[in-house]
Design a binder for these strands. Structure first.
Lengths: 170, 170
DNA sequence: CCGGACGTTCAGTCCGTATTGAACTCACGG
DNA sequence: CCGTGAGTTCAATACGGACTGAACGTCCGG
């Protein structure tokens, strides 16, 4: 693996670490992102210089979450992994679930906690509606995206995607 | 602190931990969410049964990130903390930044890595546009929320992509 | 039946980091 | 000037979890 790719995988490892996940998971993910074909556990272990045990557990976990996909080939005893085809919608859905967990916790608190202050009650209600609003918006956007990208081979890139300046943060 | 509230704060601690942040930070946040008034460091330390040192560092960090707000009262040497008034938009903006960091990493990889496969290039482009699209959608929703929360009941489901003027300086 | 090549599991180690008690700084009041 | 009370900083500790090497189970080809 060349040094540029290694830098990229390490960066992904850091991003994953910042999200509370093991760094190796991020590095696996990064490596598979820039891999043409699916990779076996041995390939991953060798490319990332980590034990096969780590690769095994982490890759499986990533597959459980829906970030990776395990693919088996006939007459081949290896397991291969690649980034899930529906990566974007899956991760977005997962993010949505986290927000909903937060919103649930707030809602349950508002309903069950002995809160005397009306101001606090109003505040909690405000959080609930705000986060519900955002979850709603994200759900809508997801649907729009799926509707747009589900069509037969979008020949032109979605114009919306180009509108946000996200580059040159260096 | 009653047991129900304690359960809630612990739950927040777990949620924060799942996000890769110290549990005490989450518990402070949870406790302040259901507090009528701002709380001093001592009050927090006593309510959560943790050292004042932890409360000090964690509360300050939360304030740095914009989740809490430190409020000083005249003729009172205590520091008080409360949840930031703009909590929702702040956390949402932070989340947006994280997505952009990811998108940046992907974009940089696409531009600088020696990728031979055209399929991989296309895949990375796809990620970029997808995540940029979502960031855009979230930005729009945020603006709608901010515009609406000042006025009456912003309850509105956007059926199709509706573009509002971006004022993006904040 | 073997032997080898897989992936998985598990005890052990190592490292980071959350948390703490104590020391420290600083401002104010007397 | 002290002494008190506030927040901060720091060295030490405890804890969790990531990672590993080795053992294990399993399937396949011979």
């Amino acid at each position: 693996m060349d040094t540029a790719t290694s830098r990229f995988t390490d960066r992904m490892g850091l991003l994953f670490e910042a999200e509370g996940q093991p760094p190796i998971a991020g590095r696996i993910f990064g490596y598979l992102m820039v891999s043409e074909e699916a990779r076996s556990l041995d390939q991953l272990a060798e490319a990332l210089r980590v034990s096969k045990a780590s690769v095994s557990t982490n890759a499986r976990r990533l597959a459980d979450v829906g970030i990776l996909e395990r693919v088996c080939r006939p007459a081949d005893r290896h397991d291969y992994y690649r980034v899930a085809p529906e990566l974007f919608t899956r991760t977005m859905a997962e993010r949505l679930r986290r927000w909903q967990r937060f919103t649930e916790a707030v809602g349950e608190a508002r309903r069950t906690l002995p809160i005397r202050s009306e101001r606090v009650r109003a505040r909690l209600r405000g959080y609930e509606t705000a986060y519900a609003f955002m979850a709603d918006a994200i759900g809508d956007a997801l649907e729009r995206w799926q509707a747009g990208s589900a069509g037969p081979r979008p020949r032109r890139r979605a114009a919306e995607g180009q509108r946000l300046a996200h580059g040159d943060g260096r």
